[in-house]
């Protein structure tokens, strides 16, 4: 395995780089798109159930199908990485829009009401109170989206653009274990690292969640 790495480190590195790019760009775009959509699902209660259902259907489209079909829809080349980025952005939005809505809905109405009674206007209340309180839920969703994106990128290899997934197809075609194992290990490590970073960000942003069981006598 070391041998394979030393002989092919350029290929592996390029695959890893592409993998990171293909997995994380959709996360950023998806988060920016999902926040307002999720908010609408809370602002207009009638919109919540359609939102959840549409997100569910989008999420159930097989990634392979989406990768293959997007070029037809967008007029892009079949081998263009943008297909993967758009497809994974769709999954990210499908997952996060619902998470954002659920996170905002999970904010205790007592808290929003006391904010209103203290004289918060709607928009400022959203940014000062509701979003921060919903942050743990939203970040938990972000962890799921990031980790599953990183593992989904590989499927793109079936249409020729798949980051570490290309190591799988190469090994599969040549009946050669090393690249497959290296690909899996790197993919899992990458997911673990990304997950860890989000956890650290969460700890920094939500210090109050670490003190759930304090409380002395009155």
């Amino acid at each position: 395995m070391i041998q394979y790495l030393t002989n092919n480190h350029e290929v592996v590195l390029a695959a890893l780089q592409q993998h990171i790019y293909l997995a994380l760009l959709p996360i950023l775009i998806g988060l920016v798109v999902a926040l307002p959509i999720g908010y609408l699902g809370v602002r207009f209660p009638w919109f919540y159930h359609p939102l959840v259902n549409v997100c569910g259907v989008l999420y159930s489209i097989p990634s392979l199908a989406l990768f293959v079909f997007l070029p037809v829809l967008l007029g892009t080349k079949i081998l263009a990485p943008v297909n993967i980025v758009v497809a994974l952005t769709i999954y990210t939005v499908a997952l996060l829009a619902r998470t954002v809505a659920d996170g905002l809905r999970s904010v205790d109405p007592v808290i929003t009401q006391s904010a209103t009674a203290m004289g918060y206007r709607r928009l400022r209340r959203l940014f000062d109170v509701e979003l921060p309180v919903a942050l743990p839920v939203i970040l938990a969703g972000l962890r799921v989206a990031t980790v599953s994106n990183i593992s989904l990128v590989s499927v793109g290899a079936l249409i020729g653009v798949g980051g570490l997934g290309q190591l799988f197809t190469r090994g599969f075609q040549l009946f050669y274990l090393e690249p497959i194992i290296i690909g899996i290990i790197l993919s899992v490590l990458l997911a673990g690292l990304a997950d860890l970073i989000i956890v650290l960000v969460q700890r920094a942003l939500t210090p109050w969640t670490r003190h759930q069981h304090g409380g002395g006598a009155a």
């Binding site: 593992s151 590989s154 497959i180 899992v188």
Partner: peptide, 14 residues
Amino acid sequence: NAGRSLPTLGLLML
């Protein structure tokens, strides 16, 4: 999270 991070395609081909 560990399960989600395993790439199914890679596992299948392995």
